[in-house]
């Protein structure tokens, strides 16, 4: 804690080093519980300097707030102190999505098995994070639950296996799904409802420097009382959706177009509806087995 509040803690998360400082116990607790398996980096060069701090002044005691600070600059309005840990997570996502333009960055979860990645893009509320968490707790490797990082030069996807954010009902679903799941203390009443984070599996973190080939783009949609079903979808439409949901498509221009078309060329694209998580995971496992035999 004292190290965190004074010099800060430097972590290696996927391709990025980040130095985190905070004087808020909730942040220290979240880091200890969810980032224990990450390697501390002792480099003199850090990619991002972030801190989460209580603002000074009277408000500190009346309605405690937390500020996210990126190298001395505040990109967001303060949030209630109860949201300090999610704020750190959102802030670190912002650091990557608004600076790392050497990647094409798509807003999507991404997991891997047998050497191929499944990209799970979907609007909020579709059950993307729940499915991602379920897969990761069933032997799939976590690459990221929010940011799919594609290297335009190689077409490979780079992992950023930070904690998975779970919201509202999915918290209970995941707790019931696996006894191995460790979730930290939830924050209530955030812009996204109740939010907690799932500790990423040790193996995913140890392999965070291993990029992987894309295999599928699958749009999950949770629906009450449906059988799990995969329906092929148009590659062109999938491309357009990915472009619209990339953080930096317009900043990258032609590079993004090339990287996106190359990605789609290598991927099978599906819509996926599901109700029960175990059924969903069986279908995904079968997909991964199929790819294995092609390989």
């Amino acid at each position: 804690m004292s190290r965190l509040s004074r010099n800060g803690l430097s972590l290696m998360t996927g391709p990025f080093t980040v130095r985190i400082r905070s004087d808020i116990p909730y942040v220290a607790e979240g880091l200890a519980q969810l980032y224990g398996q990450f390697v501390l980096s002792d480099l003199e060069f850090q990619d991002f300097y972030v801190s989460v701090k209580r603002p000074c002044g009277l408000r500190r005691w009346i309605a405690p707030k937390a500020n996210f600070i990126y190298d001395g600059f505040r990109p967001f309005q303060p949030l209630p102190a109860d949201q300090a840990f999610p704020m750190l997570e959102w802030g670190m996502n912002w650091c990557v999505s608004s600076h790392a333009h050497h990647f094409l960055i798509i807003h999507a979860a991404v997991v891997e098995k047998n050497g191929f990645a499944v990209i799970l893009p979907a609007p909020p509320g579709s059950g993307k994070s729940t499915l991602c968490a379920g897969l990761v707790l069933s032997g799939w490797r976590l690459l990221s639950d929010e940011l799919t990082l594609i290297d335009p030069a190689t077409g490979l996807i780079h992992p950023l296996p930070r904690p998975i954010s779970l919201k509202n009902q999915s918290i209970k679903i995941i707790q019931d799904f696996s006894r191995d799941a460790f979730l930290n203390r939830p924050s209530h009443d955030t812009a996204k409802g109740t939010v907690t984070h799932l500790r990423p599996p040790d193996d995913s973190v140890h392999r965070q420097q291993e990029p992987v080939k894309p295999g599928w783009v699958i749009f999950p949609k949770w629906q009450a009382e449906v059988e799990a079903a995969l329906t092929p979808r148009s590659q062109a439409q999938t491309f357009i959706y990915l472009a619209q949901n990339a953080f930096n498509y317009s900043q990258l221009g032609e590079r993004a177009f090339d990287a996106g078309t190359e990605l789609i060329r290598q991927c099978d694209c599906y819509d996926f509806t599901y109700h029960a998580l175990p059924d969903a995971i069986r279908m995904f496992d079968a997909l991964a087995e199929g790819k294995k035999s092609i390989k």
Binding site: L43, H99, H101, H102, G253, R255
Partner: peptide
């Protein structure tokens, strides 16, 4: 090596 992507990313941005 660690510094390169920062330069590359902003170079991409400026070109675009």
């Amino acid at each position: 090596r660690q510094v390169r992507w920062h330069l590359e990313a902003d170079h991409v941005l400026a070109e675009r």
